[in-house]
Design a protein around this nucleic acid. Structure first.
Lengths: 332, 332
DNA sequence: ATGAAAGCGCTAACAG
DNA sequence: CTGTTAGCGCTTTCAT
């Protein structure tokens, strides 16, 4: 009942293959017949059937997006929505579609990926996080299916990825604090299971070393991505000594730090968060935080993958997205 | 190079159609041959090609999700992420896939919908908002393509929709405040372009009327979904008089109200927000707010649509998702 | 530059 | 219960 290529062909008095060529904008079709065909398409209100095209082309122009369900801060942190929007922006430009899926754990993620690929639904996969020893990455790498990772994977050979320069971002923050006269700077970071955490920690260390400040292990704590955990980590540090500044790898952690500081009512301790979630502008004091430009991360992830799928042979295989320190009251 | 149904057929020594029937779990296939076929599939590591199935079935088992790009609170309000998760939950259960798309305005939304449908990508559409005089709804209604709306549409005949009982939710809030002894209750609502706003306003009116309290037009203001706008609306009300409570249709508006109240430092004015976004727990005072259960909205939207697509003839065509007032300091 | 025909992988009458 | 056959709508050699 749908109008097909045949109907158009009949009306335009050409063969179906000619119509197909017009759709694909094949150069060796005379402008004259092109016109005829376009008119017929318009008259019949014809739209190509994407499924049929996909079957014949063995490509769907669809990307599969793997979203984690676990991230506790999924609702507080607009990271994923921003990433999705960035992806969508580039994908739409290039006529690509996005399918998303949530999974509960790494195993399930691999299952979804396998399903996406085996059923031939997607041409490529976008992973929204890079874990230590990531099963999704190794799986995709093994079967050699096109994919891109948001976050820097451990081994990067031949893998597409986008990320902030987390080392540099933290390095800059610490440097900035040092130049404000702070020398006793504590570090409270997230789990070392995530490559981000490690990279940020290294940035912290290098900045200190570079200024000839000794690393004090007692000023370094690990926390999970919650406020309470940040609070406790700060308490621990206070038990040892009082730093003049605290850098963290996540805003929620920083919120807890602010709370702990409030209790000792010391107004001279600077605090910096990471991710610049909306809540940070609402803390007292308002929290300075590093904006990671999540939308751009998504945009370039899509670009990398789509360009690769388009067989641009010489295409680059990674992007670094810049970060910006948003200065607020907590670093005044 | 992919393994197809034919390869399986050959190995299992049956015809392709038999294999197809096994995939579709057709009841009239002997268990014996079923086993044979399953073994062959396993041995060959066969997976059905979803595209080919879709073409033959004239159905993709895919839903199209229309996300707005305009919503200013997209990043502050986890509404959409929660809705997406709810949708995904039910869809995965039923073997459905989700494609999402962002659009910049109503026109563009209609374009995306048309494209989704004409290209035959999706079996049904999920709209995440119901506007006054909604073009997407009327378009979909016209072409009679299956869809579901999150939010109650103006005319509901034959349309699938899920929503909170916004009338009742606001009615309850106002009632609750009255029983706390408040009688001079102001209302600051969002644009009447959204059906939600209208319904909530009606709930407000009814609750007052029901308790024999006269509606005072000077205590009623409209605001857009921003803090500043809420602040100004509250200022306007203060110019006229000082209410004992303020109900709003959005947390951001309520934030502005809190700020205006803080300036006159009156601690006896109760304030209630709507949506219960994470930020509300971080205000001073912490903001009481109505939780709308966004994930459930998504879940039931998917259920409604998928069940309909499954031709469950007697299936219901709307769901009401409950709301909960989360009491915090602002109503103490 | 254009047409004929085979095929992408699966499904669904129809026949037996 | 199972096989044969003809599509689903589009693309793509291979001719001409």
């Amino acid at each position: 009942m749908s109008i097909t290529i045949k109907d158009v062909a009949r009306l335009a008095e050409v063969s179906p293959s000619t119509v197909s060529r017009v759709i694909a904008d094949n150069p060796k079709i005379s402008n004259q017949t092109k016109e005829k065909v376009y008119e017929a398409m318009k008259e019949l209100n014809y739209y190509p059937n994407a499924i049929a095209r996909s079957l014949a082309n063995k490509a769907t122009k669809t990307l599969g997006l793997i979203l984690p369900n676990t991230a506790e801060d999924l609702f507080v942190n607009p990271f994923f929505i921003q990433v999705m929007r960035g992806i969508s922006l580039y994908a739409q430009k290039k006529g690509y579609y996005i399918m998303y899926t949530y999974s509960n754990n790494e195993e399930e993620e691999v299952d979804f990926i396998r399903n996406f690929i085996n059923s031939k639904w997607v041409d490529g996969i976008i992973l929204t996080t890079a874990r230590k020893n990531d099963k999704c990455i190794s799986f995709l790498n093994e079967i050699k299916h096109p994919f891109v990772v948001i976050g820097k994977p451990e081994k990067t050979d031949g893998i597409l990825w986008v990320d902030n320069d987390n080392f540099h971002a933290m390095y800059s923050v610490v440097n900035y604090l040092i130049h404000k006269g702070k020398r006793k700077i504590a570090f409270i970071g997230g789990s070392r299971d995530f490559n981000v955490s490690i990279n940020r920690f290294n940035g912290y260390k290098s900045a200190l070393e570079n200024c000839g400040i000794n690393i004090d292990e007692n000023l370094i704590e690990e926390a999970d991505f919650t406020e309470i955990s940040g609070y406790e980590a700060m308490k621990k540090i206070f038990n040892y000594s009082t730093p003049t500044a605290v850098v963290t790898t996540d805003d929620l952690i920083a919120f807890g730090v602010l709370k702990a500081i409030e209790e000792v009512s010391n107004e001279n301790i600077s605090v910096v968060g990471f991710n610049n979630i909306p809540l940070s502008a609402y803390q007292t004091p308002t929290l300075s935080s590093v904006d990671i430009n999540a939308e751009k991360l998504g945009y370039f992830a899509a670009k990398l993958l789509i360009d690769k799928l388009g067989n641009k042979k010489d295409s680059i295989n990674s992007y670094i997205v810049e970060t910006n320190l948003i200065e607020r009251e907590s670093t005044n």
